[in-house]
Structures are given as C-alpha cells and as structure tokens.
C-alpha cells in the first residue's frame, strides 16, 4: 500500500491528489452551503438535503435524454452546451421548489417545536425522498452521460486538470461568490442575516420571517440542484443512495467550518475534499473516511464551534 504511492512519480503524486481533493471539496462545499444556510436561520439539521441532491441528479439525468437526447460526448458541441445549460437552469429550479414545498408543508408547522422534533421530521423527509428515488430509477447505479471531455488542459506538467475539473471550478466558484455577494449586500440577504442573529428582533424591525425562511430554503435547494448537475457530470454515475454519503460529507464540512457560517462551509468542504483524497493516497482508501471524521473530531476538540464559527458564550 505505502510502497505504491512512494513509487508514483513525484510531479504527479502529491500535487495531483491535492488538485483532485480541491475539485471534490468545492463540490462538497456547494452541498454544505445548503445545510449551513438552513441551519443558520432555523437551527435545523436538514437531513433531507442530501437526498434532495440525489433527486436533483436524477432530474438532471432525465434532462439529458428528454429534449435533445444528448447521452454521449459524440453529440454536437452546441447540443451538449445547451443541454448542460438547461440542466444548470432547470435542476436548481426544481430542487428549490421541492425544498420550499417541503418547508411549507412539513417544517413550517413545527417552527416553535423543540429542535429534536424538527430533526426527526427531516429524517422522515429524507426517508421519503430516498424511497421516491428508488422507485424513480431503481436500485442500480446509473451512468450519467459523459458529456465533458477528459482531455488534459495542462499537459507536460505531470498534472492532470481536465475539462471536467475546469467545469466544476467554473460552476462552483462563481456560485459561491454570487452567494456571498447576495447575502452581504442585497436587502433579502441582510434580512437573512438579521433573522439568523435574532429572529424576534428581526421581526420587530419589519422583516417577514416566513419569507426569509422560504427564500433560504429556495437558495439552499438551488445550490443542491447545481451541485447535483455538477456531480453527475463529474462523477458520471448516480444512484439513489448517493445522497446519504455525500450529504454526510457535506454536513460534516458545514460543521467543520462552523455551522451557520457561509465561508466556513466552503472552507470545511475544501478541507474534507483534500483530507479525503490525500488520505486515500497515503493511508489507503479504506481508512480515508475514518480519517475525515477523525480530523473533524480533533478540530472540534480544539475549536468547539468549528473553524470559522463564532465563539459565542453559552446563553444561560
């Protein structure tokens, strides 16, 4: 095991794993943002978020077949571009709608309930989504159309950075920047931050909490939708259980960064991506998951509210 990686070429080795980790990490970060935003507003660990992501990828898979039947990379470039664009527009819309609907029907009546009640409801929603996914596409992993080239963009350096990797970065980074700008500078974003800090006071100054919460669920859902499309195109295989594993990583990322904190979620995602891939490379793949959760525990021991979480004093 160890010999294998010791012998791999120096230029390709570490840098390559780091690169892969960063690309995967930005994917986790995108999902983690959905967790963290919802948590920031209503302190709900939304266990259904990962499964929403799964349903999103199933939906995107349908879009590859339905309007233009683009299922291989042999299709005309324009058709591929149009299909990817269509996925990137419709999937987030669908996921946002579903997320808002779920909130409306299931979480909204429980706003004043204890946290555990809402979490258990979220677990219930997660079960239902998973079952829907099972009915929808069956239990076998399904190939997601391989639409984007695997050609290396930086040949000669010993590293491999393909069009696919570029696609991930080109979608996730602007999305995250847009989100940060939105939360920081728009009126709705400011209302979100106010509601997160103090819901009662926010309502006193005229902020409609229900609308803010709905908007948060919409944005979180849309981010899951974007992540679903990017995941499908990048990993190229989807199945009904993928929401669980990826959701768990993303949730871990959100907590690692300090749950409720947007830059924290991004940082947490990147850390988990890099740690996971380097762990696979140097510790062996079977230990990499254990390593991720090990790092999480160690970091929380020293920073009990996550990497970027505010060190609030316990309210008594």
């Amino acid at each position: 095991m160890f010999e294998l990686f010791a012998q791999s070429d120096a230029a390709g080795g570490f840098g390559q794993y780091l690169l892969l980790g960063l690309v995967l990490g930005s994917l986790y970060a995108l999902i983690a943002l959905g967790y963290t935003m919802v948590y920031g507003i209503i302190e709900l660990i939304n266990f259904a978020h990962g499964d929403l992501f799964m349903l999103g990828s199933f939906f995107a898979l349908g879009l590859a077949v339905w309007p233009m039947d683009v299922v291989t990379a042999d299709a005309p470039t324009a058709a591929i571009g149009a299909t990817v664009l269509l996925m990137l527009v419709l999937t987030p819309l669908g996921c946002a709608g579903l997320n808002v609907l779920t909130d409306r029907v299931i979480y909204k009546p429980l706003r004043t309930s204890p946290k555990l009640t809402v979490i258990v409801s979220a677990i219930g929603v997660s079960f239902i989504f998973m079952n829907v996914g099972l009915f929808w596409r069956g239990a076998t992993p399904i190939k997601f159309p391989d639409l984007i080239s695997d050609a290396n963009l930086i040949p000669g350096t010993g590293l491999r950075f393909t069009w696919k990797d570029l696609m991930v970065v080109a979608v996730t980074v602007p999305t995250m920047i847009a989100l940060t700008v939105f939360v920081k500078f728009t009126a709705l974003g400011k209302a979100m931050r106010a509601t997160a800090q103090n819901p009662a006071a926010a309502q006193l100054v005229g902020i409609n909490a229900d609308r803010v919460i709905a908007a948060t669920f919409a944005i979180g859902g849309a981010l899951a939708g974007v992540a679903a499309v990017v995941y499908g195109l990048y990993i190229k295989s989807v199945d009904y259980q993928m929401g669980f594993q990826n959701g768990l990583y993303a949730f871990t990322a959100a907590v690692l960064g300090g749950i409720g904190n947007i830059p924290g979620a991004v940082l947490g995602g990147l850390v988990i991506g890099v740690v996971g891939e380097l762990g696979k490379a140097y510790l062996g793949a079977k230990w990499s998951e254990a390593l991720i959760f090990g790092i999480l525990i160690v970091i929380l021991l020293f920073r009990p509210t996550g990497l970027l979480g505010a060190r609030t004093r316990e309210k008594v």
Binding site: I106, P109, L110, S121, G124, V125, F127, F135, A139
Partner: peptide
Amino acid sequence: KTYLKVSGWRLIIFGTALIVMMR
C-alpha cells in the same frame, strides 16, 4: 415489482409515520 411490495414502500411508510407523529 418493487412498488408492488410492502418492503418497497418501507421508507415512505417510515418517513410518513415520523412526520405525522412529529406534527
């Protein structure tokens, strides 16, 4: 057929029971 078996609906039944209960 998965949807013709109770076990196929298991998670939906579980989930719905939890949600209704919590509500």
